[in-house]
Amino acid sequence: MRLARPQFQMTGPPRRYFEEIEVGETYESPGRTVTETDIVLFAGVSGDYNVIHTDAEFMKTSIFGERIAHGLLGLSIQSGLLTRWMTPYASLGVAGLRWKFKNPIKIGDTIRVRAEVTGKKETSADQGVVTLARTVVNQRDEVVQEGETDVIVERRRE
């Protein structure tokens, strides 16, 4: 009796190594609508109950006119959005970031992130750092956040 050859190989999901990533590559994420629930849950997880995010009455009197999302919620959401949409890097983590909060994210705003690889640097025999410039925009294409992140990526073993 002849056994059928397996039709597939058991491997992990595809991951891109340092060598495969090119300066100038661009990515765009899907959108995500930031809800009141997101802000309430993020206050609970982070412990940041600043009135800016939690006191609707007080915020009626502010320049924003209403509660706004935590800047760090926007930063975290864009990180999740981008990784949901691109073939993941063989990433070991993040080494650093330089980030600016340009405009508020309000309840009901839909944000997405555009990113471009702006730099690559080998840091050791088995890893390198890929710098991504990221722009987070809302439904009116206004920039709400922007900055750079340095992602640590594995080098392909020979």
Binding site: D38, F42, N50, L75, I77, S79, G80, T83, R84, V94
Partner: peptide, 22 residues
């Protein structure tokens, strides 16, 4: 909440620590 995941089991997503700072 965020959709941002840890790079491997047993670790926290790096941005989570930053969020705790505030």
């Amino acid at each position: 909440v965020t959709g941002d995941h840890a790079p491997e089991a047993g670790l926290a997503p790096p941005l989570f620590a930053l969020c705790l700072s505030t």
